[in-house]
């Protein structure tokens, strides 16, 4: 049996952490894009679409992320569509984050006084002009802190991808533990690495939150 030095363990975990970060980034960017589109469509008030948005958000917020992963990974292959763990993970994390980010951004937009919309309409601005020049600049200030805060949830969410066999930080930890039988050391390091990724994000979110309060 192969021997693992401490350095081997750390090195393998660091290599796997790349995938955690990459997966988080993809999920955040993908979720952000889908979330943006949903947010724009929703505030444009196509009343007929509203039910769809509500159901969408309820499903992705109400079903555990793990089940979403299973359904994407196993469900799609049942339908004859072959997805690898990486695609399934990105797909479900993207949909999951899009629902949450959409909800965060929608609430920021709705928190703005209705009078802002009415003033724009009265002045003859189009919907796009209103969004771009009046609504988004104000909503963004409110949205930044919770958005960064949610990115921490995404990082932690990627751990679930280990269960469908995607080798990110958690999965690498499990594999190394099976090889070394040193759970405390291995999972201690895994936890430390998650902390190192998430802590700066939490600090940033808190900083932005305070800054935002100070300027209002």
């Amino acid at each position: 049996m192969m021997q693992f030095t401490d350095w081997d363990i750390l090195r393998n975990l660091l290599l796997a952490a790349r995938w955690t970060i990459l997966l988080s980034l993809f999920a955040f960017i993908g979720g952000g894009l889908v979330g943006l589109i949903l947010t724009f469509l929703r505030s444009a008030k196509y009343a007929s679409l509203n039910v769809f948005f509500k159901v969408y958000v309820e499903i992705f917020q109400g079903v555990p992320l793990l089940m979403q992963l299973f359904l994407t990974f196993f469900g799609l292959s049942l339908l004859g569509i072959d997805v690898d763990a990486w695609t399934a993970a990105i797909l479900s994390l993207t949909l999951f984050s899009s629902a949450y980010l959409h909800e965060i951004w929608r609430s920021c937009i709705e928190a703005l006084p209705k009078g802002q919309w009415e003033a724009c309409r009265t002045l003859g601005l189009t919907y796009a002009q209103t969004m771009r020049h009046v609504i988004i600049p104000q909503a963004i200030k409110m949205a930044i802190a919770p958005t960064v805060g949610f990115s921490v949830q995404i990082v932690k969410g990627t751990a679930l991808a280990s269960i469908i066999g995607f080798v990110e930080l958690t999965k690498a930890g499990t594999m190394l533990n099976n090889a070394t039988f040193e759970p405390f050391k291995v999972f201690g390091l895994v936890a430390l690495l998650y902390f190192i990724i998430c802590f700066p994000l939490s600090v940033l979110a808190r900083y932005l939150e305070n800054k935002n309060h100070a300027t209002r």
Partner: peptide
Amino acid sequence: LRLLSRSVGMVFQSFNLF
């Protein structure tokens, strides 16, 4: 309505400035 907004201005109780 956008065309109409060029003829009709409105001032609100709550100002609604940006």
